[in-house]
Simulated scan of single mutants.
Amino acid sequence: MRSKLPSAERFEEWVVGTVLPTIRKTGSYVRGEEAFDVTTEAGLAAATMHVMAALQAKADGFRAMFEAAKPKADAFAVIEEATGSMTVTEAAKALKAKRADLYGSLEHRKWVTKGKNRQATAAALRPGYMDTRTHTDTRGRVHSTPVVTPKGLAYLARIKAQKRA
């Protein structure tokens, strides 16, 4: 309260002339309430409507933030449920998609080769989106199956969420 700056003097006048008297009268101060005379019923109703409008605007802002975050939350829910790498069929179930549609999407992204014996491509193996699982059948033949890693599942879930938004 000792500063001689013009902005400090305006602040002091506002505190001494508006804020402190309002606190003395009502016990508290809410910015902008000086426009309302809360000692009368009409003034109290107007102040209440002002507060309600401010709360509604705040709620609308939170609702918009929630809607913007929902696709990401859905994608993370899919990832959270996933444990380790999964076959394309398991990944399709986790993403609530059809197996054929997911294979089509993987082929389109060049993550797997086309045809009956699909294999993970280098384009998916290098960044860690897919991996290969090998197994031996009863005749001793070795087979490899492309599997989606948690990182790949997260990427696919994020894409799916963005398409829905």
Results as ranks from 00 to 15, higher is better:
His143Cys: 10
Thr18Asp: 11
Glu13Arg: 15
Leu125Phe: 06
Leu106Ala: 03
Lys96Asn: 15
Thr83Glu: 08
Glu12Asp: 10
Ala68Cys: 00
Ile79Thr: 10
Asp37Leu: 01
Thr89Phe: 00
Ala97His: 05
Ile79Arg: 08
Ala45Asp: 00
Val30His: 02
Asn117Tyr: 08
Arg133Gly: 04
Lys93Ala: 15
Gly152Cys: 03
Asp60Trp: 05
Ser144Val: 02
Arg10Phe: 06
Lys25Glu: 15
Arg126Pro: 00
Ala75Trp: 10
Met65Asn: 10
Ala53Val: 09
Thr132Asn: 13
Met49Asn: 12
Thr22Val: 07
Asp137Gly: 04
Glu33Val: 02
Glu12Trp: 03
Asp74Gln: 10
Lys160Val: 01
Lys98Phe: 05
Pro21Trp: 03
Lys98Arg: 13
Lys93Asn: 14
Ala154Thr: 04
Ala154Trp: 02
Glu41Tyr: 07
His143Glu: 08
Thr87Phe: 04
Tyr129Pro: 02
Gly17Ile: 08
Trp111Ser: 01
Leu95Thr: 07
Val88Cys: 06
Ala53Leu: 11
Thr48Asn: 05
Gly43Pro: 02
Arg24Asp: 09
Glu33Gly: 00
Arg141Cys: 08
Gly115Tyr: 01
Ile159Asp: 10
Glu107Asp: 05
Thr48Ser: 13
Asn117Arg: 11
Glu107Phe: 01
Arg10Val: 12
Ala64Cys: 03
Ala91Met: 07
Met52Ala: 14
Ser144Gly: 13
Ala69Gln: 14
Ala91Asn: 05
Asp137Ser: 06
Arg24His: 03
Thr39Leu: 13
Met65Glu: 15
Tyr103Asp: 14
Ser7Lys: 11
Gly27Val: 09
Val88Asn: 01
Val88Tyr: 02
Lys58Asn: 07
Met130Phe: 12
Pro21Lys: 04
Lys151Asn: 10
His135Phe: 15
Ser7Cys: 06
Pro21Arg: 00
Ala45Gln: 09
Thr145Tyr: 03
Ala69Asp: 15
Ala45Glu: 03
Val112Trp: 02
Arg24Val: 01
Pro71Trp: 06
Ala57Glu: 13
Tyr103Lys: 04
Lys160Glu: 10
Arg24Gly: 00
Ile159Gly: 05
Arg24Phe: 00
Ala94Asn: 05
Lys98Met: 06
Ala97Pro: 01
Gln119Lys: 14
Leu102Phe: 02
Ala64Lys: 15
Glu12Met: 03
Lys25Gly: 00
Val147Asp: 02
Gly27Thr: 07
His143Lys: 10
Ala82Pro: 00
Pro150Leu: 03
Glu90Arg: 11
Arg99Phe: 00
Phe36Asn: 06
Ala77Leu: 09
Thr26Gln: 11
Thr18Gln: 10
Leu55Asp: 06
Thr83Phe: 07
Phe11Lys: 12
Val15His: 01
Arg31Tyr: 05
Pro21Val: 12
Arg2Gln: 08
Leu125Thr: 11
Thr18Ser: 14
Tyr155Phe: 12
Ala8Asp: 12
Ala165Phe: 08
Val51Asn: 00
Lys58Thr: 09
Glu13Leu: 14
Ala69Met: 13
Lys151Leu: 15
Arg139Ala: 15
Val30Trp: 01
Tyr103Ser: 02
Trp14Val: 09
Ala8Gln: 14
Leu95Arg: 06
Arg109Glu: 11
Arg31Gly: 08
Arg10Cys: 02
Lys110His: 09
Ile23Cys: 11
Ser7Thr: 14
Arg139Cys: 09
Ser3Arg: 10
Arg126His: 09
Arg139Tyr: 12
Lys110Ile: 13
Val78Met: 09
Thr145Ala: 07
Ser85Lys: 05
Arg24Tyr: 00
Gly27Ala: 04
Ala92Glu: 01
Lys116Gln: 10
Pro71Asp: 13
Gly84Arg: 05
